[in-house]
Design a protein around this nucleic acid. Sequence first.
DNA 1: GCTTAAAACTTTAAGCTTGAACTATTTCTT
DNA 2: AAGAAATAGTTCAAGCTTAAAGTTTTAAGC
Lengths: 156, 156
Amino acid sequence: MTTTSTKQEVLSKERLRLWLRMLRVTRQVEAALREKLRVEFDSTLPRFDVMAALYRDRDGLKMNELSKRLRVSNGNVTGIVDRLADDGLVERIAIEGDRRATRVRLTSAGRDAFTTMAVAHEGWVNALLDDVTVEDAHHIGELLHRLPAKTGEQAQ
Amino acid sequence: MTTTSTKQEVLSKERLRLWLRMLRVTRQVEAALREKLRVEFDSTLPRFDVMAALYRDRDGLKMNELSKRLRVSNGNVTGIVDRLADDGLVERIAIEGDRRATRVRLTSAGRDAFTTMAVAHEGWVNALLDDVTVEDAHHIGELLHRLPAKTGEQAQ
DNA sequence: GCTTAAAACTTTAAGCTTGAACTATTTCTT
DNA sequence: AAGAAATAGTTCAAGCTTAAAGTTTTAAGC
């Protein structure tokens, strides 16, 4: 029995294969980074992400903005910020003129901790992607840049 | 003040950028798939992954093998299989000759459910990666294939 | 055969994640 | 100005995830 495939079917299968491969690589790298953060700094990827977002804006961000920036639910951010605050790495600051909102920003201890972690983090990524040349990086980056077009929200 | 960067430093930054971009795309696609699975089938990505692994082997897999195949902790698999079993989609079968181990396999209801979901899943991925041509898919796939070389365990 | 080590799972504690429900505050409508 | 709608956050329930500790069973060493 012979099965005939249209070009569309072949393309669909090919995209699926690509997706599974991307997923595998991403998870592998993520697992390695998570492990490193845990062992070296007793921290986590979500905490690192939050601190990275706050590092860019010295004046901090509203919970709202943080949630949008990281593309995670607002309830999620609440928990992570709670724990970072418990550790003295971030602080919540009242916003005058709007008693609903809160601004979150890194404490100086938080900034110190982040800079240390960020340097290490770049090193880990650099080592994990050791096989990637500048050309590869550019090429894949370019292709990925315009990738998920159908996901509703986009933008940065 | 002028800052001079070595090639290594540039490459490191470039790899970091690539990683962040990969992460963004992957998370975006994952979020879309998760949402679809939830709304259309009241299911989740981890459940889908487990069922996909079991679908390949009609006789099922030991919890052990399932855990290795999916690269997640064994305790994790226990929970997911528990819930799938509650829904009658998988069943645990005693292995004769070794009372420690259990074999898990899809029930016929599980096979039916999975085939339906798998078709939809491929369609979603195909739509999400609409901008990817066959050439792109091949190219990125090739590059990704040899990617994380320093992660300790590899293999399939 | 008996003790030790290894293997296969499960359980547990802690954190991450989401969607939905809920509270408080602000803004919009009329 | 009163009521309705929107906005900002938190809380909650359920599920995912890991590492570590615990259980039961099997295999190895002596």
